[in-house]
Simulated assay, not measured.
Amino acid sequence: MITKVKFVSIPVKDQQRALEFYTQKLGFEVETDQPMGPGQRWIELSIPGAQTGVVLFTPPGQESRIGTFFNGSFATADVEKTYEELKARGVEFVQPPKKQSWGTSAIFKDPDGNQFVLSSEK
């Protein structure tokens, strides 16, 4: 039986720039970084404390996905605190923390314009 989602893919234009953003600004860790075809690398990152990781890779023919809204959400115990920490590291937010009946969320983007929801764990 399936036990978890191992990783999700984030389409990026410049893999090196994306790698620096996700490791230096978001604190993700490199699990794999190896060549994969002409001009591409397979870059798999882990999120400290999480079972699911991300891959910075754009399959051929999927370039139109770069800079779109990520269909998922990153969770944190304290959205406001994480927002302040990431903002201090230079992460650009398109929506500051906003309280809803279900919890709190904010929206940030990476250097390629991909947008991500940062939400409360529960």
Rank of each mutant, 00 (worst) to 15 (best):
S73I: 10
A106F: 07
V91L: 08
D110M: 00
Q34R: 01
E29G: 01
F74D: 15
S73E: 14
P48V: 11
V117S: 10
Q40S: 12
V54H: 02
I2N: 00
K99G: 02
P38A: 07
G49M: 05
E44K: 08
E121A: 05
S9C: 09
I107R: 00
L86C: 03
F93Q: 15
E92H: 03
Q115S: 13
V8L: 10
Q51F: 07
R41A: 00
E44C: 09
Q51Y: 13
F7S: 15
S64V: 10
L56Y: 14
T82A: 00
K25H: 14
E121N: 05
K13N: 06
R65V: 02
Q40M: 13
S105L: 13
G61R: 06
V5F: 12
V55C: 10
T52S: 00
I43A: 03
G27F: 06
V12F: 09
K109E: 12
G103L: 04
P38Q: 13
T104S: 08
Q51A: 10
I47H: 02
T58Q: 10
E20T: 11
A88R: 12
Q24F: 03
I66V: 15
L26C: 05
T76Q: 14
V12K: 07
E121F: 04
V117G: 02
V30T: 04
E85P: 00
D33W: 04
G113V: 11
G39E: 06
Q24D: 14
F69G: 01
P11E: 15
V54F: 07
K13M: 04
E31T: 11
F69T: 11
F116N: 11
E121T: 11
Y22N: 08
L45N: 01
S101L: 09
F93D: 15
D78M: 00
N114E: 13
T58W: 09
T68E: 11
L45T: 05
P35A: 03
E92K: 01
S46M: 05
F57D: 13
D33V: 06
Q15P: 01
Q100N: 08
N114P: 08
M36Y: 14
K109L: 04
